[in-house]
Design a protein around this nucleic acid. Sequence first.
DNA 1: AAAGTGATTGTAAACGATTACAATTAAGAA
DNA 2: TTCTTAATTGTAATCGTTTACAATCACTTT
Lengths: 363, 363
Amino acid sequence: MDIVFALKFIYIFALSFTNPDSMKKYATLKDIANALKISTATVSRALADRWDVNAETKRIVFEEAKRQNYKPNPIAKRLQNRHSKTIGLVVPEFKTSFFPNIISGIQKVVDEAGFQLLITQSQETMEVELRNLKLLENNMVEGILISITREGENSDYYQELIDSEIPIVFFNRVSSSIEAPKVIIDDYKLAFFATEHLIYSGFKKIYHFAGPEKLSVTMERKRGFLDAMKKHHRDISENSVLTTGVFSDKGYDAMKMLIQKNDLPEAIFCFNDPTALGALKAIKEEGLICPDDIALVGFSETELALLVDPPLTSVQQPSFEMGEVAARLLIAQITQNPVPEPETVCLIAKLNVRKSSIKVKGD
Amino acid sequence: MDIVFALKFIYIFALSFTNPDSMKKYATLKDIANALKISTATVSRALADRWDVNAETKRIVFEEAKRQNYKPNPIAKRLQNRHSKTIGLVVPEFKTSFFPNIISGIQKVVDEAGFQLLITQSQETMEVELRNLKLLENNMVEGILISITREGENSDYYQELIDSEIPIVFFNRVSSSIEAPKVIIDDYKLAFFATEHLIYSGFKKIYHFAGPEKLSVTMERKRGFLDAMKKHHRDISENSVLTTGVFSDKGYDAMKMLIQKNDLPEAIFCFNDPTALGALKAIKEEGLICPDDIALVGFSETELALLVDPPLTSVQQPSFEMGEVAARLLIAQITQNPVPEPETVCLIAKLNVRKSSIKVKGD
DNA sequence: AAAGTGATTGTAAACGATTACAATTAAGAA
DNA sequence: TTCTTAATTGTAATCGTTTACAATCACTTT
């Protein structure tokens, strides 16, 4: 085996003997042209199968191209026609199935439009998000899809990108200060619904586990919660809203703390499924029962909601569709002339009521 | 609002009035050179901050570059120095946290090495996997990290890539026929352990929910299961092994079927966590109790294992580390000369025993 | 005074592909 | 025979950057 390799090596070496350093990985147009003693222009035209080249020439060019295993160099192509046919994606994370579902939707539209997709994750930090944006810019993406990690800090850079004609479409977590196409659901309304559902179910003391600060979705959901509470004249104490963030351990910690302080609500409307599941875990560990002792509602339903016990009430977002719509809007920004006005698309979401928020019996 | 948009539009239009067609997105070296009436070579050297250019010249070049908001064109750069500094990643899916964790590990190493990462998902189908590979090749990645969707069908293409000097490193789900670096855990051994754990716990009738066919991990885990059963002289009936695949609904269906056929094992060793959780859901729905009626063991632990009730016994893989190691191996293949011999790294995994597989009392 | 040195800059050829334009040829029209 | 015309191919510029090599100039050095 080794000897075969060695022989092969010597062979290659001998072939490229004139200049061992320039051992080429790829055959180029020039290689084909040289082999056939014609110009690169003709080769290029032949491979593009254009009308103005002789059929016989085409044949031998294709043959030689195949023989040399020629593959066009996409970098050179891009430099020539000055577009990368690539769009970039920035998501905060993909540890739950929420963003992956969106990505599937994006992927579909992007594929159909003949574009390619560069995926990055910012791990819920601004620094990584910024690095990702620059990475995408360096790869000459023609547009960017983003769900931001926090409102504010990087907005100048979003604007800079837009100004340098790299369109951006925001989805799910949008930047309120930037004028650009956005795809969202009505977080306010659904938070309101979710809260009202708890109220109508007869739960008295209701808390809210809020998401990361400086995030539009956090604020909208909190606002929806508060307005629903106000509408039904519920007390809103200082403890009614706890900021917990996005990960399950935070929901767990918050719940543990409430239990320890013996400040138990009858129901909690959580920012998302992971925090709700974290809270659920704490509830069980402490020997309490959901929904009998504490009812839970999540948000941005993932498939876990159904697997868990009790099944979790949650707001189901049309995540696949959200990806599709966002991608379509971006591609419109890139390809249409004149550039369409930025519009904000609000998709329809719904509350799926399950056992975790159903009151066992009236009191 | 609409009027504001319209006005803004007219404004932009007016600005670009002089020559709407040649509206350049980027300033180039030439632009700077022309503005300062010097050659592009000097500008290039100045911006690269090289020793052989006058300090004052550097100063004015930097100034002009800033004024024109110059950003080097990475495409041209790549064409020039002929490497993309990009590596590609192909994973079957990222709907559970398993692959995302691996990706985080990869990301870390790749960033540190100054490379960029192109992420693709093949959605558990060979066609998409092939398309992804070609996409990556078209983007001139210098190497590919892959966890394959099924053994066999695309191996010719893997080999082709390797032959055309694009190194490949396999991780988690590897191709047995290709000679290349691989990162795995000892699936056989851990499946063996997991099964023995069930046997030692006193469960008599034990089944295995197997993964997708034609996958090394499926076969190894199955083999581990069977060997452990044989070692302890357990009956292996035709029904002992059921092929269920990777998704939770398949585990759910399989469990429902067993219940319907009244062919209930005392314990099931599942291919992965999602199938185990699917089975768990079916168990609960039918009014049975885990682990009292049926015990469960998963594999490739995700954070769900802990959130679910009862907490799920599962094999914890060092996923972050797996990503790190795989990325390091690939980067070694790309940068080291001579290319290191392909090695297979086997990482250490462990079985985390939790309530789902603990026998309540002896019988 | 002639030659050597160092600092600085420009010229031009690459990288791999595309394409406007010109050139060549052969056939048919005048 | 001369002129068009169509078919086919080649020449050379271009995309934006890098870099080997040459050129220029002002000083030293002998």
